[in-house]
Computed example of a mutant assay.
Amino acid sequence: MSDRQCPDCDVQMEQTNITAEGVGDLYVETERDGEILDRLGVGQQTSVHTFLCLECGLTRLYADLSE
């Protein structure tokens, strides 16, 4: 996953993990009904990566569209 810049602070965000007690890996669940995600080749479960801005604390999740 490529480097990400904070849209507010314009600094490089650090890749990190989000955990929730009793929850496994986080993923985006999509339906494949011919819409945009289907055309992009995104499966029914797509993993996500978490990035954190160490300046302001903004946290963002990005779907891994390269899978």
Score class of each variant (00 low, 15 high):
Glu14Asp: 03
Met1Pro: 13
Asp38Asn: 09
Tyr27Ile: 02
Thr50His: 13
Val48His: 02
Leu37Thr: 13
Leu40Glu: 03
Thr59Ser: 05
Val28Trp: 01
Glu21Ser: 11
Glu31Asn: 02
Leu65Ser: 13
Ile36Gly: 00
Leu58Trp: 08
Glu14Leu: 01
Asn17Ser: 02
Arg32Lys: 10
Asp25Gln: 00
Val48Leu: 09
Asp10Phe: 14
Glu14Met: 02
Gln12Leu: 07
Asp38Leu: 02
Thr50Glu: 02
Asp3Gln: 08
Asp3Met: 03
Leu58His: 07
Thr46Asp: 06
Gln45Ala: 11
Glu67Tyr: 02
Val42Cys: 14
Glu35Tyr: 07
Leu58Ser: 08
Val23Arg: 04
Gly24Leu: 04
Cys9Phe: 05
Glu29His: 08
Ser47Phe: 04
Gly43Ser: 08
Ser47Trp: 01
Gln45Leu: 06
Thr46Gln: 14
Val23Met: 12
Leu37Pro: 07
Ala63Lys: 03
Leu58Arg: 11
Gln5Arg: 14
Val11Arg: 12
Cys56Ile: 11
Val28Ala: 14
Val23Lys: 07
Thr46Lys: 04
Cys53Asn: 12
Tyr27Arg: 13
Glu31Met: 08
Asp3Ile: 01
Thr46Leu: 14
Leu37Ala: 12
Gly34Asp: 11
Arg4Asp: 06
Cys56Pro: 09
Asp38Ile: 01
Gln45Thr: 03
Leu40Trp: 08
Thr16Lys: 10
Gly43Val: 01
Asp33Tyr: 01
Ser2Glu: 10
Glu29Gly: 14
Gly22Arg: 07
Thr59Ile: 15
Arg39Cys: 00
Ala63Asp: 06
Thr46Gly: 03
Val48Arg: 02
Glu35Asn: 13
Gly43Lys: 12
Cys53Gly: 11
Thr30Tyr: 09
Ile18Arg: 05
Met1Tyr: 09
Gly41Arg: 06
Leu61Asn: 09
Leu58Gly: 07
Cys56Thr: 08
Arg39Ser: 05
Asp10Glu: 15
Gly22Ile: 13
Phe51Glu: 02
Leu54Gly: 13
Glu55Thr: 10
Leu65His: 12
Phe51Gly: 06
Leu61Val: 06
Val11Ser: 07
